[in-house]
Simulated scan of single mutants.
Amino acid sequence: MPGDVSALHLVLTGDPALLSIVRLSLIVSLSAVLLAALIGVPFGAMLALVRFPGREGVIVVLNALMGLPPVVVGLAVYLTLSRSGPLGSWGLLFTPQAMVIAQTILVAPIIAALTRQTVEDLWTEYRDELTAMHIGAAGRVATLIVDARFSLVTALLAGFGRAAAEVGAIIIVGGNIEGFTRTMTTAIALETSKGDLPLAIGLGMVLIAIVIAVNAMAWTVRRAGERMAG
């Protein structure tokens, strides 16, 4: 079809508008995953190893947060960053930084929950050895995180997949401003509604390629971990 041919031409020729959108999408999503990892990995590991009253309730809530509706997160961040909100003076609304905040909130529970499960499984396996060596809580967390690094990379890639495909939250807090806060998902939605199918299809091709690449990386990392463990 003509639209498909035009879309492929935009991708192969490196259309500046398309590349700009893809670049911003990757920057926002990767930044969000990095921040979510800094929050989620230590929190998930501590939750796996530390026993305290209400722990089971925290785990239930954390697992529930993995399915946070993006539009609800977007609304909450919008109200927080709006002029009348508590952080309105920061002037972050309708900026890439606001989009990173929204995606971080969405991705952090996923990484934390997957980290908790992974570290908890390892703790069951290595509890006797680490206890006999009199390793403290911080040392246990560090040891198990290092040992689970391949599984945790898979968790990070899962978080990136969620961030890269997200549209509801970032269109609310970013505003979908051309050349400034327009990402692949928001651009696809807008260009489709405008009838500019070549650009929408081209961005869709790139997004699918990224998702496939992320899943291939996750599979490769998992296989590498299995070989090293074997």
Score class of each variant (00 low, 15 high):
Thr186Asp: 06
Pro70Phe: 03
Val167Asn: 04
Leu203Met: 08
Leu47Lys: 02
Asp15Trp: 01
Val146Asn: 12
Leu152Met: 09
Lys194Val: 10
Leu62Glu: 07
Leu199Gly: 03
Val146His: 13
Gly54Ser: 09
Glu178Gly: 00
Thr220Ser: 15
Phe94Gln: 06
Val119Asp: 04
Thr124Val: 12
Ala218Cys: 11
Gln117Glu: 14
Pro198Cys: 11
Gly139Gln: 10
Leu197Phe: 15
Ala113Cys: 05
Leu38Gly: 13
Leu34Gln: 08
Leu8Thr: 10
Asp4Lys: 05
Gln97His: 10
Ala158His: 07
Leu35Cys: 14
Leu156Lys: 01
Ile177Val: 15
Leu19Trp: 04
Thr185Phe: 03
Val141Trp: 02
Leu19Arg: 09
Leu79Arg: 06
His134Phe: 10
Val58Ala: 14
Leu65Asp: 04
Glu120Thr: 03
Met46Lys: 13
Pro96Leu: 08
Tyr126Leu: 12
Val119Trp: 00
Phe180Trp: 13
Gly230Ser: 14
Gly40Ala: 06
Leu24Thr: 07
Met228Gln: 14
Trp123Lys: 02
Ile188Arg: 00
Ala165Arg: 08
Asp196Gly: 02
Leu203Ser: 09
Ile177Trp: 10
Tyr126Cys: 04
Phe160Pro: 00
Tyr126Thr: 08
Trp123Ala: 14
Leu26Cys: 13
Leu207Asp: 04
Trp123Val: 06
Pro42Val: 12
Leu19His: 05
Glu226His: 11
Val211Ile: 14
Ala137His: 12
Pro2His: 07
Ile210Gly: 04
Met184Tyr: 04
Ile111Val: 15
Trp90Tyr: 13
Ala148Phe: 05
Leu93Cys: 10
Thr183Gln: 10
Leu49Gly: 05
Ala48Leu: 05
Tyr78Gln: 07
Ile170Gln: 01
